[in-house]
């Protein structure tokens, strides 16, 4: 049987996942190259082997079965596999150039790497700026290399404010922006709100968008439809509020709660920026699920949200959003 049949892919998937669990680079690379030898293309191997296995890795971590170090080790092995697959792509750029970056704060670089290699397989010249690219560096780079597109990866909605800065940096020099990753919301709705020219649901979609009808240049990003100055005021006091929030949580809640809520101010800022409570609601829902796997009750989450709201005198929109999140988890 060909190694590339559906059964072959499934079998390779098991071998691959075991290799990630054991941080066994050679076994993981071997599984990927086996599918390549069986006739699959590099984008197909990425989409059918690496992406599903990484979803399982994420689920293992969220479910509390893996600690963060193991998750990092597994992801690192997938990184190496993507590099090994990329090294087998012929260097024949026949399209334009794409500058690819993870938004500032975004450390999950693997998805961007997968998109990068898929774009390269589609004939694009890709420059990957790596995890957590500072916005200023992106701006410098884009000016210098004059790409046809900037592709921004964001897996966590908390980084939307920096994503906005990066969208402005790219469009400020007329380069259109392609956004990708779950951080931009269901169907990429926040990508549009921030001024990205398009949102890709996966790597293949990114190739499709860039290949057909991609704008040759972009106008500067339009101003945001924000009803008030809460985002700016919140941003100015964020460090202080985060500190007080941590204090309130660590004092009264279980330790896991304080840790889990550490990033909540970032999500609240993002929710204020795109004026959509769903940014916060979805994150709190996810957090409550993860904390439940670690023995924290939804009621404790609700109480923590109420304490957080108590700290936000003078931020009515933020308080409404916290109330919505609280109602959603039933706390």
């Amino acid at each position: 049987m060909s190694g590339a049949g559906a059964a072959g892919v499934a079998a390779a998937g098991e071998v691959y996942f075991a290799a990630l669990r054991d941080a066994d680079e050679d076994a993981a690379v071997g599984a990927a190259l086996g599918l390549l030898a069986g006739g699959l293309s590099v984008p197909q191997v990425l989409a059918s082997l690496v992406v599903p296995a990484q979803r399982r890795v994420g689920a293992c971590w969220e479910g509390g079965r893996w600690d963060v170090a193991r998750e990092h080790a597994a992801t690192h092995i997938s990184d190496r596999v993507v590099a090994a697959l990329g090294a087998r792509l012929p260097e024949v750029p026949r399209r334009g150039r794409v500058v690819l970056a993870c938004v500032d704060g975004e450390w999950h670089a693997l998805a961007a790497r997968i998109v990068g290699e898929t774009l390269r397989a589609g004939g694009w010249r890709v420059t990957f700026l790596g995890a957590s690219t500072p916005a200023a560096r992106l701006g410098e780079y884009v000016r210098e290399v004059g790409p046809d597109a900037v592709a921004l990866s964001c897996s966590v909605a908390a980084w939307l404010p920096t994503a906005r800065t990066m969208v402005r940096a790219a469009r400020g020099v007329a380069v259109p922006v392609l956004a990708g990753g779950p951080g931009f919301g269901p169907d990429g709705r926040w990508a549009r709100a921030l001024g990205a020219n398009a949102w890709a649901r996966d790597a293949a979609h990114a190739v499709e968008l860039l290949g057909g009808g991609w704008p040759h240049y972009a106008e500067p990003a339009p101003p945001l439809a924000v009803p008030d100055d809460e985002f700016e005021r919140f941003g100015a006091r964020r460090a202080l509020l985060a500190e007080r929030l941590r204090g309130a949580l660590c004092g009264e809640g279980p330790a896991a709660l304080g840790e889990g809520f550490g990033r909540l101010p970032g999500f609240l800022a993002a929710a204020l920026l795109v004026d959509d409570e769903e940014v916060l609601v979805a994150q709190v829902r996810w957090l409550a699920g993860m904390l439940a796997a670690r023995g924290v009750e939804p009621r404790a989450v609700g109480a923590a949200l109420a304490r957080a709201a108590g700290l936000l005198e003078g931020f009515p929109r933020a308080r409404r959003m916290l109330a919505a999140a609280r109602a959603d988890v039933g706390g």
Partner: peptide, 14 residues
């Protein structure tokens, strides 16, 4: 200490 046995490439990134 939380990264015992992990590949150094992953550890330095972490």
């Amino acid at each position: 200490g939380t990264c015992a046995g992990a590949p150094p490439g992953a550890v330095v990134q972490r």
